[in-house]
Design a protein around this nucleic acid. Structure first.
Lengths: 197, 197
DNA sequence: CAATTGGCATACGAGACGTATGTGAATAGG
DNA sequence: CCTATTCACATACGTCTCGTATGCCAATTG
């Protein structure tokens, strides 16, 4: 049987990604020594270079993993809303909630862009924006949202506002109070998208 | 006379900041070798460590300089608007225009946050947000903007959306067309802040 | 004019990265 | 069943960059 081989490889990749994710998410990408975190996974840089090419390649893999998890979570939570508009708003607020996680902030919003450039052009990490874009398009077709906007552009801007909201909450002395303020301001901005009666 | 001395020092600092700004803005912070860009200014790392402590310290100085320039420019351009709301909107769009500069994108929005953390907590680099916050407060007093929002929180969210807009335009194949779309979407979001009649 | 400060350079050591090479186990073919 | 080959991963080495400790020379001060 040729299963054990494949399984070992998958396990090695998973261990490297997990170790890197932890290191990147805590001390940050620049401070994370490849020797250190590969060792913490019981491996060496040899394995890293073999599977991911270099440190950036591993960062890409980590980001792809996180993006997948986020998209899953967003769809799962938001799909319970009664109206499509509400679904859309829930999607955004869930996104903000997830962005409160220090690991996600650090990797997706701080180090990620510095290492890999504009997130809009990341290869395997646009599931969240894709979903939001889709909903915006349908909301326009249904006449809920003003029709003259480009959906993807709009969802990118919303993404920017979301991540700022999350950062503000996360770095606040009083997260509860700040959360209320930030979500309120965010929803108010979203109101601008709705067609007036 | 003790002028030449002080002047030489100021010149050295200025040369280091200029060289670093160029290096950080083109190849990026991580790739910029201190030996290289100090040499390009006719100096060595000795001068850098003496004046700025370390690479991060120099990054702070570069950012403070850019922030000052941006605040100056924003106020200058926007102050010509007829109404306060228009002034506010102009402020935002001017901000977006400035953010198109690759050097500003790279230093202020990509590398800066990765190196120094949350921009909201940078010591000498909040002139733009401060000005926007002030205008939002006055617009609320005048009854133009809905009163229940926290001005600083709101301006941070707008900042996030602005920088996304700028990135989207800057990385576009067709900047003219993208610019129209992004500014339109942005203004639409701002409409959400206005009190309805 | 002598003493001292301080701006800046040089020298040295410590990591961190990338590459080239080695090794042992799993797989494939006869 | 045996051999050859592939390939996952480790090791070794050279290079680069950073931080610190030290030294020197010019400008200032008394």
């Amino acid at each position: 049987m040729h299963r054990p081989r494949k399984e070992m490889i998958a396990e090695t990749r998973a261990k490297l990604i997990a170790a890197a994710r932890h290191a990147f998410g805590t001390i940050g990408y620049a401070e994370a020594s490849m020797d250190d975190f590969t060792a913490s996974a019981g491996l060496t840089r040899g394995a890293l270079y073999h599977h991911f090419g270099d440190k950036k390649g591993l960062m890409q893999a980590v980001i792809a993993e996180i993006d997948g998890e986020m998209a899953l979570r967003v769809n799962e939570v938001a799909s319970k809303a009664p109206t499509r508009w509400q679904h859309f708003v829930d999607e955004c607020t869930t996104y903000i909630e997830m962005a409160l996680e220090p690991e996600i902030q650090r990797i997706m919003f701080r180090d990620g862009p510095a290492v890999l450039g504009d997130p809009a052009q990341w290869p395997n990490a646009n599931a969240c924006t894709a979903s939001m874009t889709e909903h915006l398009t349908k909301l326009q077709e249904e006449g809920v949202v003003v029709p003259e906007l480009d959906p993807e552009t709009t969802s990118r801007l919303i993404n920017g506002a979301s991540s700022q909201a999350a950062q503000r909450i996360a770095n606040s002395k009083d997260p509860e109070a700040t959360s209320k303020k930030a979500i309120a301001a965010f929803k108010q901005l979203l109101e601008g998208l709705r067609k007036k009666p």
